[in-house]
């Protein structure tokens, strides 16, 4: 874990000193604040707290599309669609991964409340989506059974 943090810190300072990095990422310091607290968290509760979404409300307006059974935990396709008006961010967590928070996406300027990606899962667990809309957080979860884990190995 410390190794990881070291690397992230190193990465951050390197990007800061390189003018070219700022040029590449149009919005300049958009990447300045990698949420180390949330991504380094070892429990779902801590990860949610790190994201500032400690107590999200359960919502049926978020749909998670993922296989019921994933044969290969290293590649689990996940699609999250939110029907909540004013959705500004979507985060994906795999509850039993060593670090549950997988990714968070901030959506703006016309981006639809939809994200599709592929994630790794260590074992059978709930996949949880956390959506932020209008300053409130909503969540839903879906179980994915994993027959071969994607972490470790």
């Amino acid at each position: 874990m410390n190794m990881l943090r070291r690397n992230i810190l190193k990465g951050a300072s390197a990007a800061g000193t390189l003018a070219i990095a700022a040029g590449l990422f149009g919005t300049g310091n958009a990447f300045a604040a990698y949420n180390t607290a949330a991504f380094g968290a070892k429990s779902v509760a801590d990860a949610l707290k790190g994201m500032g979404a400690a107590t999200p409300t359960d919502s049926k307006d978020i749909a998670i599309k993922a296989p019921d059974i994933a044969e290969n935990g290293a590649v689990v396709p996940v699609e999250v669609t939110s029907k909540i008006a004013g959705t500004t961010s979507i985060a994906i967590l795999a509850e039993k991964n060593p670090n549950p928070l997988v990714a968070s996406f901030k959506l703006e300027n016309g981006a639809e409340p939809y994200i599709s990606t592929r994630i790794k899962m260590g074992q059978t667990a709930m996949i949880r989506a956390v959506v932020t809309a209008g300053g409130k957080t909503y969540t839903t979860a879906k179980e994915v059974k994993v027959t071969i884990g994607g972490c470790g190995g």
């Binding site: 949420n35 991964n97 670090n99 928070l101 997988v102």
Partner: peptide, 18 residues
């Protein structure tokens, strides 16, 4: 339009759709 933060739990050779 989109800014994301990822952990290492995104699969190798990542796919992203939006």
């Amino acid at each position: 339009v989109m800014e994301a933060e990822w952990s290492g739990a995104i699969s190798k050779n990542p796919y992203l759709g939006f």
